[in-house]
Computed example of a mutant assay.
Amino acid sequence: MLGMFVPGAMIIVLGLAVLFNQLGWNAATHVLWWAGPILVYILIPLIDIFLGPDGENPPEEWMERLENDKYYSYILYAYIPLQYITFFMAMYLISADSISWIGYENGLSLVDKIGLAVSISFVGGIGINTAHELGHKKENLERWLSKITLAQSFYGHFYVEHNRGHHVRVATPEDPASSRLGETFWAFWPRTVWGSLTSAWHIEKTRFQRMNKSHWTIKNDVLNAWLMSVALFGVTIAIFGWQVLPYIILQAILGFSLLEVVNYLEHYGLKRQKTASGRYERCAPSHSWNSDHICTNVFLYHLQRHSDHHAYPTRRYQILRSWDGAPSLPSGYASMIVLAYFPPIWRRVMDKRVVAHYEGDLTRANVHPKKVDKYYAKYGVTANS
């Protein structure tokens, strides 16, 4: 149930804003609109450190019952209305000239509006994780709910690219969503954003070519997902006016950037080896960075048990298992996201773990092409090792 806390928190923020202004705590109210980054970048990492990891798995005899328990699906479904209640609430607060019932006679200040847009970007960004869980399932309802959830961040092509692109090419140089050893997040971001978009389009175009049909159709899963975003943004502007457009764009970019920084840390430097046939080996637990830190796992539907997810993509989140042999992050995703924003700190923490994982043989790692000579020289590896 705590997975719904992030969208629910923004509704709580609204209530606290009313209370704080009634108590005369006006200065404290301004901090509330920045609740999203405070929660994700500060509170959750601190709780992760305090609670630590938990590598326990459900007993085998419980697996089938857990797999079929609809309770866990209902939690996913419940995220979506909360997500859009929060989204429209934020657009109303941003566009209103006066919000006297909260205590803002002249509406929110520019800084407050930006803070609110940033906060709802975290709701949309974590919503992409909800969409990720739903998009892997076989039921049409859950797949359509996945696209609806992605509409806020205008990242509907993720539904195609992640399932039919990333899971095929994961931990290979060809995958735009697998980061390379020595690649900073800021270099990875444009590569993965553009690469994922073009890959999704190519995947759908190829699918329709095989059927001898035009891909310019509403049945194209990239186009129909994008149209949901166009409809959402159009309705929002029609209701609240053009002044909300910059904030819609801001929250969308930050929302899908939250997804991409998670992508960055999930497979950093890891690489599947090629077999004698020239094909890549099957994805194994060793090709994903895991973290069993309790707090972030609760908020992200066990996304951090990533090795099991790639081994069994349709397995529901409640029965994902922890693998002893999988490489592990030193902390939860929330903490590692902050490190990823600062490349020198990230490299200091993670590069040695990649080197240790491959026992010093970086010819087996996914090294940034521009950094190969540097890393080989640093760790005593030659190109012909």
Rank of each mutant, 00 (worst) to 15 (best):
F88Q: 02
F88Y: 15
F88K: 00
F88M: 11
F88I: 04
M89C: 08
M89K: 04
A90F: 04
A90Q: 05
A90N: 00
M91E: 04
Y92L: 04
Y92Q: 06
Y92G: 02
Y92P: 04
Y92F: 14
Y92T: 00
L93H: 04
L93V: 10
L93R: 06
I94G: 08
I94S: 06
I94D: 00
I94P: 06
I94L: 07
I94F: 04
I94N: 03
S95I: 04
S95Q: 02
S95W: 00
S95R: 02
S95T: 03
A96K: 08
A96Q: 11
D97T: 01
D97P: 02
D97I: 02
S98D: 09
S98M: 08
S98P: 02
S100C: 02
S100W: 13
S100A: 15
S100E: 14
W101E: 14
I102L: 15
I102Q: 06
I102E: 02
I102N: 02
I102W: 01
G103T: 10
Y104L: 09
Y104A: 12
E105A: 15
E105G: 13
N106I: 00
N106K: 13
N106G: 06
G107A: 12
G107S: 08
G107P: 11
G107K: 12
L108D: 10
L108N: 08
L108A: 07
S109V: 03
S109Y: 08
L110T: 14
L110R: 12
V111H: 13
V111R: 12
V111M: 14
V111I: 13
D112E: 15
D112S: 15
D112W: 07
D112K: 09
K113L: 01
K113S: 11
K113Q: 14
I114K: 05
I114M: 07
G115I: 11
L116H: 10
L116P: 06
L116A: 09
A117E: 10
A117M: 12
A117L: 12
A117F: 11
V118Q: 03
V118L: 14
V118Y: 03
S119L: 07
I120R: 05
I120D: 02
I120A: 02
I120C: 00
S121W: 07
S121T: 04
S121H: 03
S121V: 06
S121Q: 07
F122T: 07
F122K: 06
F122L: 14
F122V: 12
V123N: 03
V123F: 05
V123S: 06
V123Y: 00
